[in-house]
Design a binder for these strands. Structure first.
Lengths: 208, 208
DNA sequence: ACAGCCATGTAAGTCGTTACATGATTGC
DNA sequence: GCAATCATGTAACGACTTACATGGCTGT
């Protein structure tokens, strides 16, 4: 249950409506812990019913309303409890690597395509994460600024440094994935070369 | 839906009972795609009802029975279809990194503990994956041997190489996680040093 | 009038977790 | 007789996905 804690953490910066929270999510946390708005709204209601946040109903336009959520003391305590709890790390579940172990059931071209898609995906992620690291290090996002404004100055270093460390870790991870994909492509090309040298055509296992 | 395809892939080696499949899972695939037996048994029934596997009922003891599953042609086709399909990569969902971005809400000691747990976890994983790479490269597991026996010899290289590449990727990943944790520990120690030099005690944000 | 963003949800279904439950066989 | 391992499930619940649905406000 990281979603609720991500929401609580966002609310430490300032009170926000569900919509604003969803936007902040999409701008930062989503790259660490993805959640669509359809998950956020009900979770906020649950947090409210558990007393971890309070909502004040604000009119919007003539008829409609929005709910402005803020953190309660119980919410802050729950956040601290969660931060101090050492969680079990989740067991690996990686569809891309799993599929890669079975590339023999597809063509060489397919393996190349898969590795290329992998590379491109992480190249994109890397770009985002790198720019996010820059934004954080330079305190360039609106959220980090309000967060810092609410904290005592001698904590500022830590607040920024932890976030930078996490997002840098993701940049490294993206780099590793890109390397893995590149090496995968090299491997496939090697296998293709070998295969050309044995002109007998295979007829054993399934291959489309 | 990788579970079903992992099951189909395992069955390319030889027919197996649910129990055997669960054991094979726990010995290899589980480190790529974890699934408990309570998920495997129902999934096998579903695969059977969709015609991707067939089951022959074998007596065990006097009263009980077991079901021996084997891959059908439709199952093989589905496996090939899946291998050739480029899947969207799942959005990141990393509880450990997410929590790390909020370590300012806990003590320095807590941050150290968290990073140490992270390090130890991946050190374990690395050991397992490394030995698995060795087993695969030397064709030392029962499963890879039956799998190879059923494939044409000119495919043997690829079958082993793809698996070795995937598990090596996981070893690299574990190494990266260990590095991240080490750097996290160094960061916390830096922050502690700085903090000692400012003797005023903080009283702003929540800290237990 | 219409586009685009603000704003908030529901509903159905799948996937995954955790705990519970039962019984058979093998070897000591 | 008992423990370990073989063997197969169910049940309840929670997390997540995808699609659907509604309406308001702002600027052109």
């Amino acid at each position: 249950m990281s979603l609720r804690h991500a929401l609580l953490a966002l609310l430490t910066a300032r009170p926000m409506t569900g919509y604003e929270l969803a936007k902040q999510f999409d701008a930062s946390v989503t790259y660490l812990w993805h959640a669509p708005h359809s998950q956020i709204y009900p979770e906020l209601r649950r947090l409210e019913s558990e007393g971890l946040v309070t909502a004040t109903v604000v009119p919007r336009g003539m008829k409609a309303v929005k709910r402005n959520y803020s953190l309660t003391e119980a919410g802050q305590e729950e956040l601290v409890r969660w931060v101090n709890e050492v969680q079990e790390l989740p067991q690996t579940r990686d569809a891309a690597y799993m599929k890669a172990t079975y590339f023999e059931f597809g063509s060489y071209d397919n393996a190349l395509r898969q590795f290329e898609a992998h590379f491109n995906y992480y190249a994109d992620q890397k770009r985002f994460w790198e720019s996010h690291v820059q934004d954080l290090a330079n305190k360039r996002t609106a959220l980090i600024q309000t967060r810092l404004a609410n904290a005592s100055p001698d904590e500022h270093d830590a607040i920024v440094a932890y976030k930078v460390h996490a997002y840098r870790g993701l940049v490294d991870r993206a780099r590793a994935e890109m390397r893995w994909a590149r090496e995968g492509i090299a491997l496939v090309k090697e296998l293709m070369k070998h295969h050309e040298q044995l002109p007998e055509s295979p007829a054993g296992s399934p291959r489309p």
